[in-house]
Structure formats: structure tokens, C-alpha cells
């Protein structure tokens, strides 16, 4: 039994939310409290302390990166020649790098890119995976056969080598194209990295969604919808998909973390963003040569990556529990 089935059972025939869990007193037949699936999930989620802590950390890091850069007095390119490779102090909370640039400012600025790459590539990967999985599971037959062979092929692709290769080979070309198109070549690199990570990471979602679609399309509620003449797209997206949504959300959360690590790995190997874009991985790459002498230059960006990914993984774990009605306490 999987949760999706239970979700359908908790739907009231009138379409409204059914009372669940402790909200109902079966004895006297009066329901005291009604909760929708989502508010129930939120209530469950709050009980997972580490997941809540993760959410707080992620919100903090995101706000710091996107709003903090506007408040923080120093830019990423401000060079202080008298303070190269300085240790943390009141002026430079995280110290400075080999060029005398403020590490905190660079972490905040780089966080925008690392987080955006993580979120966007997870979004693309999950969308592609859902679309492929849903079509394969729903239509079956030759469509299923073709899409699943394609998925198998992508699973066998040598991911890391291809990632390095594509990034290395097409970086300059994309940079020049974006420079001409948008006036900023780094936008091109940004799009390239998001796309490459997404293209190599949609397969597990596709398999998950397909399996659920295969199971759910035989259910009575789908048959009922079909019998009243619902169109195929309505069946797919309005009737079946919502039942798979909770699993997709969990997969999406976890793949944000994985995408952030992948981007950092790429940048760490010197094959991600160019040196004027300080993503977290890039900062580690640059700190690598002197970290024996100036450990702060590597520790701070590394810690931020670690904290971000750890928080995301805990959020994913919390969501998995919260969205699974079987675990309702």
C-alpha cells in the first residue's frame, strides 16, 4: 500500500476536506475540527523538529543571500590589498581571500547562484521526469516502451564524465552566444549548467511517477471519471497527478540538494562558472591551493554548502513523513 491510495480515501465525496485523525470524535458523532490535507501535513511537518530547523536555516540562508547582498556594505569585487588572506575579524566577519576580497560578501552573492541553480535545475528535472513518467504510465504500450527505453539509456549514461565534458566543450560557445544575446555571458553559463544538471537527473522521478500512474489508472475513481467523459489530459493531470504529488514534492526537495552538490562539484573541478562568478564551489576551488595556510577560505564556503544540503535533506525527510497519511499521529 502506498500513500496515494490513502489520499484518495480521505477525499470526501462532496469534495470538501474530510476530518482526519484526532479532529473527529467518533463516539458522539460530532466532528470538532476539520483539517485539509495540507494543513494536516503542515501540522505533521512541525512535529519533525530537525525538518523545521532545516526550514529555518534554508529560509535564513536564502534571505541572507537575496536580501543581505543589498544591505551588506562590501561588494564581491572590492579589493583590499592591505588585507589579503585575512582571518575573520569585525571588519571582515569571514576573513578575506588571496586578493583581499571579502569572503562573506562573496558567499552571499555566490549563494544566489548556487541556490538558483539548485532550485531551477530541480524544477526542470522534476517537470521532465513527471511528464515522461506520466505519459509512459498513462498511455502504456508503445509510448511506455519507448519512453522507458529512453529512461534506461539516460540512467546508463556516464553522468559525471558527461557533465564535465559538456560544460568544458560548450562553455565558451554558450558564453559568447549569451554575451551577444543578453549582454552578459554568465547568463549563458547559468542556463547551460541548469540544463545539463536537469537533463542528467530526471530519470528517477520518471520511474517513480510511471509506477504510480500504472497503479492508479486502474483505480475506481479514475474509472468513474472516465465514465463521465473526462478527457485524457483531465484524467492525467486532474485526477491521477494530485495523488502522486506528495511523492513528487519529496523527490523534488531531495533533488535540490543533489543539484547544489553537483553544481559545486563542477565548479570545484574548475569546470563550472568562470572566476568572476563566486559560487560556493568556485570559492572552494580557489581556496584549494592555500587552504593549509588559510583554512577559513575553504571552511566557510564548504560549511555553507554542507548546511544548505543538510537542511534540504532534513526538510525532505520531514515532508516524506508529513505527506504520508499512514504516518498520521
Amino acid at each position: 500500500m502506498s500513500q496515494a491510495q490513502d489520499v484518495t480515501l480521505t477525499e470526501s465525496p462532496l469534495g470538501g476536506p474530510l476530518p482526519t485523525g484526532t479532529g473527529v470524535t467518533l463516539g458522539d458523532g460530532t466532528a470538532k475540527q476539520y483539517r485539509s490535507l495540507w494543513s494536516n501535513a503542515w501540522r505533521q511537518f512541525r512535529m519533525h523538529r530537525l525538518a523545521v530547523a532545516g526550514l529555518v536555516v534554508i529560509v535564513f540562508i536564502t534571505v541572507a543571500c537575496f536580501v543581505g547582498t543589498m544591505i551588506y556594505p562590501r561588494g564581491i569585487d572590492d579589493i583590499d590589498f592591505l588585507m589579503t588572506s585575512a582571518s575573520p575579524s569585525s571588519t571582515y566577519p569571514f576573513g578575506t581571500d588571496a586578493l583581499g576580497q571579502d569572503i562573506l560578501a562573496r558567499i552571499l552573492w555566490g549563494g544566489r547562484i548556487s541556490l538558483s541553480v539548485g532550485f531551477l535545475s530541480a524544477l526542470v528535472a522534476i517537470s521532465v521526469g513527471t511528464l515522461v513518467g506520466a505519459s509512459a504510465g498513462f498511455f502504456g504500450g508503445a509510448t511506455d516502451g519507448f519512453l522507458m527505453r529512453l529512461t534506461d539509456l539516460f540512467i546508463c549514461l556516464p553522468q559525471l564524465p558527461l557533465l564535465l565534458l559538456i560544460s568544458f566543450l560548450y562553455r565558451e560557445k554558450v558564453y559568447r552566444w549569451a554575451d551577444a544575446q543578453f549582454g552578459d555571458g554568465n547568463i549563458g553559463i547559468f542556463l547551460l549548467i541548469i540544463l545539463v544538471i536537469a537533463v542528467l537527473n530526471w530519470m528517477s522521478t520518471a520511474r517513480l511517477v510511471r509506477a504510480e500512474f500504472l497503479r492508479l489508472k486502474e483505480k475506481e475513481f479514475v474509472e468513474a471519471a472516465r465514465s463521465i467523459g473526462a478527457r485524457q489530459t483531465t484524467l492525467m493531470f486532474k485526477h491521477i497527478l494530485p495523488n502522486v504529488l506528495s511523492q513528487i514534492i519529496v523527490a523534488a526537495t531531495l533533488s535540490v540538494g543533489a543539484a547544489i552538490i553537483t553544481e559545486s562539484t563542477l565548479s570545484f573541478l574548475g569546470l563550472g562558472f568562470p572566476s568572476d562568478v563566486p559560487t560556493w564551489g568556485r570559492m572552494l576551488f580557489e581556496a584549494q591551493s592555500y587552504f593549509q595556510f588559510y583554512p577559513y577560505q575553504a571552511l566557510f564556503p564548504g560549511m555553507v554548502i554542507f548546511l544548505t544540503v543538510l537542511s534540504i535533506n532534513y526538510i525532505g525527510d520531514g515532508l516524506r513523513d508529513a505527506l504520508d497519511p499512514r504516518k498520521t499521529r
Binding site: 562539484t265 570545484f268 572552494l284 583554512p295 571552511l299 564548504g302 535533506n313
Partner: peptide, 17 residues
């Protein structure tokens, strides 16, 4: 959770330090 949230490039650097 710590294990699969730590990227290898960071653990490598930490271990060396």
C-alpha cells in the same frame, strides 16, 4: 544524514586540515 549531505570535496579538505 551528515554523510550524504557532506560533499566529497569538502570532507576531503576537512580531513586534510
Amino acid at each position: 544524514f551528515l554523510g550524504f549531505s557532506l560533499p566529497t570535496f569538502f570532507t576531503g579538505i576537512l580531513f586534510i586540515l
